[in-house]
Design a protein around this nucleic acid. Structure first.
Length: 321
DNA sequence: CGAGTTTGACCGGCGC
DNA sequence: GCGCCGGTCAAACTCG
């Protein structure tokens, strides 16, 4: 479905990073920074210093401009998100146009709602769930995304329950292996969990829970203090894609357009989509995410270091004079 | 030694 | 009917 015909997508946050680059004169700024850094190495005469001051002022102005653009981008995103939500509420039937893989047809009427969700999700195979599982029991399926350290290659998700791994498989549409877990806290607990890294962002673990726990969560607090950052996006299978993360490679800004961390819900409950994306907390969260992404950019850090060192040299020289 | 993990084999549904 | 594929089993292995 073509949302662009209904909402203003000029911001184009995710689909085409190149557009964003063209929107923001980032490369120009970068080259200025680099140029600035090179010049810094030969700060000898006053003329150069004056030129650098001028350059710094210009870069500062550019920085302000970028900040304003960032703010505008956040506002546009919120508007876009609202449009999308409105559109989805008006058109509840999902479109399957993006799902071209040879997925099996949903054959379990009990999972109809869930299947709607999984069809809109990116890579998982929930719609292939075999009906040989107890047909009478409606297995609740929910999906939770976790962000992990990029270096973390494990598939362990601390969610407060005890899990026993009973299998691992590499699936067709995702090079990352999928791990299968059963709840081992209570022998009679029917809950299963599948954990797989997101095909687009390997730092995101996607955990799919099937069924409901028939025992209390053992250690939510342990989970709260674990190294995993509860990310952003929890979603009911079937509404919007579970993670709204706008991750992209390269020197572009990576946004996690999702919710701020919140208390861990019981995995047996359907997790709901995000709260109020327009709240001040969410805005702050977005800004934090953007700042975090910028600081992870080596070229940005190099440019920033050059600018800071330049400023320091300038100050030192002005003090001598 | 018991509990948990790994991993190849097997099962069953689905598309062709 | 055959092959593909996701899901599960279970023996071997690891670890505390």
């Amino acid at each position: 479905m073509e949302y662009t015909s209904l909402v203003n997508t000029s911001l184009d946050l995710n689909t085409n990073p190149a557009n964003f680059l063209s929107l923001v004169p980032k490369q120009e700024a970068q080259s200025n920074f680099i140029e600035l850094g090179l010049k810094m190495s030969s700060v000898k005469d006053e003329q150069t210093a004056d030129a650098l001051v001028e350059e710094l002022n210009r870069v500062n102005a550019e920085n302000k401009k970028l900040t304003e653009m960032l703010t505008v981008m956040c506002e546009n995103y919120n508007a876009l998100h609202k449009h999308l939500a409105d559109y989805k509420s008006n058109n509840p039937a999902p479109s399957d146009s993006t799902n071209n893989s040879k997925k099996r047809k949903p054959d379990n009427p009990n999972n109809q709602i869930i299947n709607n969700a999984s069809e809109s999700s990116s890579s998982d195979e929930d719609s292939c769930k075999k009906p040989r599982q107890d047909q009478g029991i409606k297995a609740k399926i929910s999906r939770v995304c976790y962000r992990t350290e990029a270096s973390d290659t494990g598939l362990l998700v601390k969610d407060g329950y005890q899990w026993r791994k009973y299998g691992q498989k590499v699936t067709r549409d995702n090079p990352s292996p999928r791990a299968y877990f059963k709840c081992s806290h209570a022998p009679s607990c029917p809950v299963k969990k599948k954990v797989q890294r997101d095909v687009a962002d390997q730092s995101i673990l996607v955990a799919t829970y099937e069924g409901e726990h028939n025992h209390p969560n053992q250690s939510k607090q342990e989970q709260a203090s674990s190294g995993l950052n509860r990310t952003v996006a929890t979603a009911t299978l079937g509404s919007v894609p579970c993670s709204a993360s706008l991750g992209s490679s390269g020197p572009t800004i990576t946004l996690d357009l999702t919710t701020p961390p919140k208390p861990q819900p019981n995995p047996s409950e359907e997790t709901k989509v995000v709260g109020d994306n327009r709240s001040p907390e969410f805005q702050q969260f977005l800004v934090d995410q953007m700042a975090s992404s910028l600081t992870k950019d080596p070229s940005f850090k190099a440019a920033l270091a050059a600018a800071i060192s330049g400023r320091m040299i300038q100050q030192n020289q002005s003090q001598k004079w």
